[in-house]
Design a protein around this nucleic acid. Structure first.
Lengths: 147, 147
DNA sequence: TAACATTCTTGTATTTATTACAAAGTTAGG
DNA sequence: CCTAACTTTGTAATAAATACAAGAATGTTA
């Protein structure tokens, strides 16, 4: 099981079930574990991180299943894919207030930031915006001190 | 040679030489070719695209040289690395007015767009912004019609 | 409940982007 | 023209992501 009661939860199991049901994604135990890991975490994990974390609870889950699950949920707009750094895709829960992301170039952590409204007005007429990403890179307060 | 006179040029060879000299990057023929390709082009090519294009003029250039050149120029802030899509890094000339990018999810092309000022105010106090990227994804006018 | 069709998961094998590194080639300055 | 520093090459290695076929699980229908 997901041991929901053992840590601070932002999205409950019933909420996750509802999300998956609405998107007609069968709530298999692995998918729930993937969603739980991405949703109830401050970080924005990579597929690899999700895989390693889930492996602790489900020793025989395959990497392909993790990729499949992440893709399915991204397509269903339950998750958002963040191409915020070279080499790997990070995942973020989509169902929360729109926000931008700050990546610390020193420690690698990613922080949620505000997002101004009206950004879509920046695109030229005729273009249809489906997604907007605002990324910052720099030093987080902790790393800014230690250098 | 670079055949500068054969196509519309936005950055001249002497300008490129000056950029490299200022950054203390030796202007080898390959590096000039890399910079020329990225600078004088509407697209925002990947390392692979740069390599293939240059191969036509320099049949024995190696892929590693292209990567080395791109990295050196990115580090010198002559080029900017765009992590706008999964799987590969795209390159953009840094020395022009700040702008955002729009990626067409249908044809894959990337377009320059406006960038509002003051975005850095979105980050929380204590964070030091070194780079800002605003990405849009959606349909370009041509692809919006044909669907 | 039994049988079937669909969906999920696995595991392996590939592909693709990128990096590492040592050897060979090139360039600039004395 | 010699030497030191820099550049390029080519090959090999990593790492992220994908393809695919076989097996397992699930839901549905009779």
């Amino acid at each position: 099981m997901l041991n929901s009661e053992m840590r601070k939860i932002m999205v409950s199991e019933s909420q996750m079930l509802e999300m998956l049901r609405q998107s007609e994604i069968r709530p298999s135990i692995h998918r729930l574990a993937v969603l739980d890991y991405v949703a109830n975490r401050q970080t924005h994990p990579t597929a690899e991180e999700v895989y390693k974390a889930i492996l602790a609870d489900f020793p025989n889950v395959s990497k392909t299943t993790v990729y499949n699950s992440l893709h399915a949920m991204a397509e269903a707009h339950i998750l958002r894919e963040l191409e915020i750094e070279s080499g790997s895709t990070r995942y973020d829960l989509a169902l929360q207030a729109p926000h931008s992301h700050f990546r610390c170039t020193s420690c690698g952590r990613i922080f949620d930031m505000n997002l101004p409204s009206g950004l879509d007005n920046m695109v030229s007429p005729g273009f249809k915006v489906e997604a907007t990403d605002l990324f910052f890179a720099g030093l987080c307060p902790r790393c800014a001190k230690n250098n």
